[in-house]
Design a protein around this nucleic acid. Structure first.
Lengths: 321, 321
DNA sequence: CATTTCTATTCAATATATAGACAATGTTTG
DNA sequence: CAAACATTGTCTATATATTGAATAGAAATG
């Protein structure tokens, strides 16, 4: 099945090799010898994939029971969102740095390939690059380390005239579609608090906000996403109507909009002092003073946003309307 | 049979092949051996179609019971909300007119529910409504009979001030995400001709163009989708760079942009006379004269677009750069 | 009579399966 | 240290399956 390859990020070759060499999974066969994978087969492959990425050799773990694998995952990788590396596994500490270097190199390669695809307006190619990258970087990695930097770069190239508007648009919609497709796998968290995400009036690039929605969903928030360029009154209206307890704004271009500070002040006045408001993005720092005056927290990057949302959710488990 | 084809998005050939090879549906026959499909047959075909687009092979799922299919759909595509009712009263083709009325009634209901969700900015609800509709209306139906009218209505409500910008935005991104997820996932057709789809400068609503990409992909075209609001020079640049042999423009709001006619003329001048250019959308007819002067074909609706693209591809199998 | 549907058959493009080889890396041994 | 070996992802070659689409002739429809 091709789905298996897509859902595990492993090439069909590898999946078959693992089966043949280590009996990692033994799917049923159809009458004509096709492999038929069950959900649990796929889950097991994902486990194995995660563990091999964490440094375990497939030969060692391929024959373990699924329960043992889960045990091992908990011990080695920990609980998923924690960033802290715990290098007390036997084999990990050695080349932590080297591994990191390699990872950064890989990201650079992916970035270059993606940029090239954008320049040639080859949307299929760009999607292929992203797909290949998600295998290596994982879900959060692709958002925070590939897609994020990519749109920043594209924005700059566009701003400096090295990229046409059409190229920028083509890239935007493709990245958006890709994230859309993969974000979807995370269910809506019904109990979680709600956050409104958008960009203020005049801010025309929506991708930053879009990536933020992915991060927020992953962090267990209920997201109302409104796209780009909304006036303050509209934003506050949406916050009130949805009963959101937080608001995130993306600010990328332009970086020198004289109207934006006033817009932010208006926003704060209309919303009252209780609403948590964040702002991030390529040019957010350019409005640092305005943000401070409006009591809006400046978020450095998507990783920080995730941290912030996680801790906020911890302290404030139920949304207050 | 033709109706079935339209409502499922499957070609008559495929429907017969599925019946013959896998017994996917076994419609009753008229006295003269014509196939008579029931409502539930069509719903079942829609289910199968959705699942094959999601990657399941028809050979594996074609013989499953309808209940199993629904189960599978829930698991793979993930609709937390029940999938459309199957009309189990076995009313085969009893009365064309009555049936049509009922269908229109169903669509109206869906439309009303969707609009309500948009008003309350309940994105989850809106998605639920769309999900429920897709089995009944099918691939083409959801685009041409639900999503299309829905965005038109939203546009009008917004234009008349009955809907806020935030509501309009929220609806737009949700519909866009839904189409992306359920409908647009078609394999890239290598070898097919290429079409560029976008909206001209000043046209801020992208959804019409977005739906058009779904139609074009289904019709076997290679699509370069550029989102909203591009100047003529950029559009032509994209056409040249991608080697496209056609261009489709969506025109919805505003309906009285004094600059648009000039923009269209410029477009035609830059592109030369050989490029096939279409325009459609809520307000396209308002620019009928400008379109004619620029030699741009006016497309009435998405169904016409599909027809047009199919015939064009037939006569012009290889794209000329 | 033009159009549509039906059956039956064929075609071509992908996907998948098996077996084996290979390269890069790391490990053990002499 | 070098040679031999083990591990593991990737690649090739070839055969078979799958599946959407195409074709042709007969029957039905309007």
């Amino acid at each position: 099945m091709k789905i298996v390859s897509q859902r595990t990020g492993l090439s069909p070759h590898v999946v078959r090799a693992w089966e043949k060499r280590y009996g990692a999974v033994e799917p049923n066969r159809s009458g004509t010898n096709r492999r038929l994978y069950s959900e649990s087969d796929i889950a097991r492959l994902n486990l194995l994939h995660a563990l091999t990425r964490a440094g375990h050799s497939i030969g060692q773990i391929g024959t373990l029971s699924t329960a043992q694998l889960q045990e091992l995952t908990k011990k080695t990788i920990g609980n998923e969102n924690g960033l802290g590396h715990f290098p007390d596994g036997d084999q990990l500490e050695r080349d932590e740095a080297a591994w990191d270097d390699e990872m950064n190199g890989a990201i650079d390669q992916h970035l270059a390939a993606a940029l090239d695809a954008c320049r040639r307006m080859d949307q299929a190619k760009l999607e292929a690059v992203l797909s290949r990258a998600i295998v290596r970087l994982g879900y959060s990695g692709i958002i925070e380390r590939l897609a994020g930097p990519l749109i920043t770069t594209i924005g700059e190239e566009w701003h400096e005239g090295n990229m046409t508007v059409a190229q920028e648009h083509a890239a935007t919609v493709t990245i958006r579609a890709f994230i859309e497709k993969h974000v979807r796998q995370y269910p809506i968290s019904h109990g979680g608090p709600t956050i409104v995400i958008t960009t203020p009036a005049g801010q025309i690039h929506e991708l930053g906000a879009f990536l933020a929605t992915a991060v927020a969903k992953k962090a267990g928030w209920n997201v109302v996403y409104l796209g780009a360029s909304l006036p303050a009154a509209e934003i506050v209206g949406a916050v009130v109507q949805s009963g959101a307890s937080a608001l995130a704004l993306s600010i990328s271009y332009p970086a020198d909009d004289p109207d934006l500070p006033m817009e932010l002040l208006t926003l704060r006045q209309l919303a009252g002092d209780d609403l948590n408001v964040f702002a991030g993005g390529r040019s957010a720092h350019a409005y640092a003073r305005a943000l401070q005056e409006s009591n809006i927290a400046l978020i450095a990057d998507l990783g920080s946003l995730r941290q912030k949302l996680l801790s906020l959710r911890g302290h404030q488990p139920t949304p207050s309307a």
